[in-house]
Design a binder for these strands. Structure first.
Length: 951
RNA sequence: GCGGGAGUCGCCCAGCCUGGUCAAAGGCGCAGGGCUUAGGACCCUGUCUCUUAGGAGUUCGUGGGUUCAAAUCCCACCUCCCGCACCA
């Protein structure tokens, strides 16, 4: 059947709109406040974004059907720098970005022209995204929409940030960042050429003294100071004499420049060439001992300070340089006597690990690239497995991994060392072309996420929350653990200014943490009830925290009370949805900021995290050209098929795979269900036959299982229940009724179908409405109740059908193996003493007793079942039978002692056998007189496993 | 390195917490049949190996262990994925 998906989408979206179906105000019903991370409008939404929002929508729709008053609002996050960067690139005529906008996102030329203004980009994609959300059928209350640069929102953020500052959770300090010296701006991944993240490490500078100067050398292994034998100098480098905060240093020119950005006061006093330094002696910082400076070509002026401290026993570079050096020296000279000093004992290595590594890898000279590998090996092994030797003074006997920090502290305390921050992946170039550096930003504002009390409170909140899926929970705990000060303001981009320092703008991950509360305000602002300038500290304090009174200047008291009431009704947030990439930042900040600002009764209740979407098994990316904008997909396939395809391919946290085949499958499934709806009429129920009772039981189970899955947002599983799991059961039912030539089941089928449509409706809201209408129901399915389980499931009905199915399977099996064409089938049911034995064994098994020998003994001891000894195989097989049956069914079997197999089979199985195998079937109990049993099969009969003879 | 997660019958992916419903669901693919002018869609049957009586054998990353019983619990190992910050 051809279905015009787009027409159906529009039809029902219009109906919902006419009914104001998704507008939610406070009322006397129980509420659920469902939120999802709002989008950043720098591109249209693609299928991947669609997943998070679709899950949230399904969640909201489900809860509505469960009878809750559900609020599902949406806002738009304009704050941030990427839009600014985009705008700059468009202005510069960057073809890469312009082509992308045109070809992937189909943005018209006229619109692109306006993109030189950042706000135009945000506005354009804002509308684009919103349209897409409407077209996807999201049940959003649009009256509460806002952007983060609305004046009223900015008032809200000012209040938030002021409140945090009052609580001393915002502090000032310095912080290293990747920095473009030309733009005078921090750089992050999307500001650099090739999108590289500027990474940096902290080197320890060990300060050696020389002739009134300090010669610092950079190292990542301060503990090796005890094994220093000399310094390495590159004779070809011209070094600078500089003064650093009053101290006189000798370093390379590159190093001097790096120091300038690290908030050090530098003046240049002169130069000294490397060759001049070679051969001179310097003094160790920690004891009065002199070592020489020697020449080495591997020393690079751009790395560290341009001078290297040599630890030949433990650093392969140093070891090899020493070997090279000695080759060029006349024998017998004093310098030939320099010997590596071993200071670390490591299992698997001897006195001089560096030597072993160098020799193992066959390294030829100090310019051999394999030295990197050797260094990595030794560093790793010594760090994790090494123990410091006696010659390391107070640190002797400690593990390297443990001693390192205390050595660092000791060096700093004694002023033997300093710090140098350096890019690890240099050169990093800014998009403007300039080479980036590490800069220490001073006077930076931080949220003090390192605060112990704050962490404790957040952990408490988290412990009380539902986190779905559960196994992501440890990740939240981990993040709270390692979080420390986090910059909360930057100098560029759209956003709200810091109230106390207007040069700074509140950073985008800090102005998006408690905005769910603002949805309450937004409705009143949008309706013109209250305006931005009236939103004072007193107002927010009262509305959100209940502090002060409703006497707020400029706002009528009853309005303030109304807003406060609505806030009190909807808060706390019942569920927050987002993609998993926001776990280590937004979602955790969301918890932290809530516990900082709101009282415990308004702490969030739940977080639901989902994975991303792949296209044909591959990651979506611009370069692959496999990004499908959501709206394009909706036009092509319809909203519901997309919603289902995204949801059905993976459980919450897994990556979902989106592909055309999958959509096709879903479309077909929905189409055939739709067709059924057009054909099935509501009729009166007949008197219920066994299979009717059975299918009702199955339906109850379906509702139960689907509901359980929905409650845990296991949407994939729920969809499977609703769409597929029921099919094989329904098939059996149809087979049964058909073989009995029944014509009175339409009413039952109609009920089943109605239930399935109800449960489908949160997932595929449009087609479900259409199906609902076709089934002849009045009203909207989206406003109906989720089906409830009321009927008691008849255990006898379940058992009967299981038995019939089992026999049919057995017959089919025998026919398959023997390949005979049946003429006549005879069934033999077990004798009553076997049933008694069966129940005895069942009880034993249920009590955990499965030992064959003791069961046997007890059976023989009982005269009622003593006959069992003629047939010892029976016990063995029966135990197996029982174990291969679900615990649920075991219980029902235990509950129903009387079960007349023979009459059931003769009533119900004959017609089935006739229609399936085309033969007549006769039934005997194994002890019947006049039994027809030419092959002696009857004695093999077991309860629920009758013997079969096929001729 | 730290932290989190995963390895299942051609593919995707359930099951594992709470051992026996497990030769292991479902979807896709493939094979046969039905329907159809044909194709598509849809429906049925089959899809580890062996088997002329409903059975048996070998499987759930690898190797051990616990148990009457292990995909499921314990230990060790191998492989893969993700996050580690000033960025939405």
């Amino acid at each position: 059947m051809e279905i015009d998906w787009n027409a159906i989408d529009r039809k029902w979206q219009k109906k919902w709109l006419e009914n104001n179906d998704h507008e939610t105000d406070s009322n006397n019903k129980e509420k659920k406040f469902i939120t999802v991370a709002y989008p950043y409008p720098n591109s249209p939404q693609h299928i991947g974004h669609g997943r998070t929002y679709t899950i949230t929508d399904v969640h909201s729709r489900y809860l509505r059907m469960k009878g809750f008053n559900v609020l599902f609002p949406m806002g738009f996050h304009y704050t941030g720098t990427p839009i600014l960067g985009m705008s700059k690139r468009v202005e510069a005529g960057d073809t890469e970005i312009i082509d992308g906008l045109k070809n992937i996102y189909n943005v018209p030329d006229e619109a692109i022209k306006t993109f030189v203004e950042p706000i135009k980009i945000a506005n354009y994609f804002h509308q684009e995204i919103k349209e897409g959300m409407i077209e996807m059928g999201y049940s959003i209350d649009w009256r509460r929409e806002f952007t983060t640069i609305d004046p009223a929102y900015q008032k809200f953020i000012e209040w938030q940030i002021n409140t945090l500052k009052e609580k001393n959770l915002i502090i000032q300090g310095s912080h290293p960042v990747g920095w473009c010296p030309k733009d005078q701006n921090p750089v992050s991944q999307h500001d650099t050429m090739g999108d590289v993240e500027p990474g940096f490490t902290e080197y320890i500078l060990i300060k050696f003294s020389f002739d009134g100067y300090i010669i610092p050398t950079a190292t990542l292994r301060p503990e090796t100071l005890f094994g220093v034998t000399n310094l390495w100098v590159n004779p070809k480098t011209s070094y600078k004499k500089i003064s650093v905060d009053g101290e006189k240093w000798i370093v390379s020119a590159e190093c001097a420049r790096k120091l300038e950005f690290l908030d050090r006061k530098i003046t240049y006093d002169g130069e000294i060439s490397g060759s001049e330094l070679v051969g001179k002696e310097i003094t160790l910082p920690h004891r009065n001992e002199k070592i020489p400076m020697l020449e080495a070509s591997f020393v690079e002026s751009q790395t560290g300070t341009g001078l290297v401290m040599s630890v030949p026993a433990h650093a392969p570079f140093d070891y090899q340089a020493l070997v090279d050096f000695k080759k060029n020296q006349p024998p017998g000279l004093e310098l030939q006597l320099i010997k590596p000093i071993s200071i670390i004992e490591t299992e698997g290595y001897g006195e001089i690990p560096a030597k072993e590594a160098v020799e193992k890898l066959g390294i030829k000279d100090q310019n051999d690239p394999k030295l990197e590998e050797a260094t990595e090996e030794i560093y790793g092994k010594e760090f994790y497995g090494g123990i410091l030797k006696q010659n390391t003074e107070q640190f002797a006997g400690k593990k390297v991994s443990e001693a390192k920090d205390s050595i660092k502290e000791w060096l700093a305390e004694k002023k033997y060392s300093d710090i140098l921050l350096e890019l690890t992946n240099s050169p990093v170039r800014c998009r403007c072309g300039a080479e980036c550096v590490v800069k220490i930003l001073t006077n930076q504002w931080f949220l003090n996420y390192g605060d112990k009390d704050w962490k404790e409170k957040a952990t408490k909140c988290l412990d009380g929350m539902s986190i779905l899926p559960q196994h992501i929970r440890p990740e939240f705990n981990y993040v709270i653990g390692w979080l420390h000060e986090r910059a909360c303001a930057r100098q560029h981009g759209l956003g709200t200014k810091l109230p106390w320092n207007k040069e700074w703008i509140v950073e985008s991950l800090s102005d998006s943490v408690i905005y769910m509360a603002y949805y309450i305000i937004a409705k009143f602002v949008n309706a013109g009830v209250i305006s931005a300038e009236k939103l004072s500290k007193e107002f927010f304090d009262y509305v959100f925290l209940g502090i002060g009174s409703s006497d707020v200047s400029g706002v009528p008291k009853d309005i303030v009370e109304e807003i406060r009431a609505e806030f009190s009704y909807f808060y706390p947030v019942d569920s927050r949805h987002s993609g998993r990439d926001l776990v280590p930042n937004h979602l955790t900040f969301f918890v932290l900021n809530h516990v900082a600002i709101f009282p415990e009764n308004n702490w969030p209740q739940q977080i639901v995290v989902n994975g991303s979407v792949l296209m044909d098994g591959k990651k979506m990316s611009k370069s692959m050209g496999n990004i499908i904008p959501l709206r394009e997909a909706v036009r092509k396939y319809g909203a519901d098929p997309i919603r289902l395809t995204i949801l059905i391919s993976a459980e919450l946290l897994q990556d979902a795979d989106f592909n055309v085949e999958a959509i096709k499958g879903i479309k077909n499934k929905l189409a055939s269900m739709y067709e059924d709806c057009t054909k099935t009429k509501a009729e009166k129920f007949p008197e219920l036959e066994p299979e009717d009772k059975w299918i009702h039981g199955i339906l109850q189970n379906l509702v139960l299982n689907a509901g359980k899955s929905m409650d845990e947002i296991r949407l994939r599983e729920a969809l499977h229940h609703i769409l597929f799991d029921f099919d094989s059961e329904l098939q059996w039912y149809l087979k049964r009724t058909k073989s009995k030539q029944r014509t009175n089941i339409s009413g039952i089928l109609h009920k089943i179908l109605s239930y399935r449509v109800l449960m489908l409706s949160p997932f595929a809201p449009h087609i479900a409405e259409e199906m609902w209408e076709k089934l002849g129901h009045s009203g909207l399915v989206s406003q109906s109740s989720w089906p409830s389980v009321s009927d008691v499931i008849d255990p006898n009905a379940i058992q009967s059908e299981e038995l019939l199915k089992g026999i049919m399977d057995d017959i089919a099996n025998i026919l398959k193996v023997t390949k005979i064409t049946p003429n006549k089938i005879t069934i033999y049911t077990a004798d009553s003493f076997k049933l008694k034995a069966y129940h005895f064994i069942l009880e034993k098994v249920m009590a955990g007793q499965t030992n064959m020998g003791s069961i046997m003994k007890e059976l023989i001891a009982n005269p009622e079942t003593a006959d069992i000894k003629k047939n010892p195989d029976f016990v063995q097989k029966t135990i197996k039978d029982i174990l291969s049956v679900p615990t649920e069914i075991r219980k029902t079997k235990l509950a129903t002692k009387e079960f007349d197999e023979k009459s059931l089979i003769s009533k119900e199985l004959i017609s089935l056998a006739k229609s399936d195998f085309g033969v007549d079937l006769q039934v005997y109990s194994e002890n019947d007189s006049g039994i027809y049993d030419p092959k002696g099969k009857a004695r093999h009969a077991r309860p629920f496993k009758p013997a079969i003879l096929i001729e």
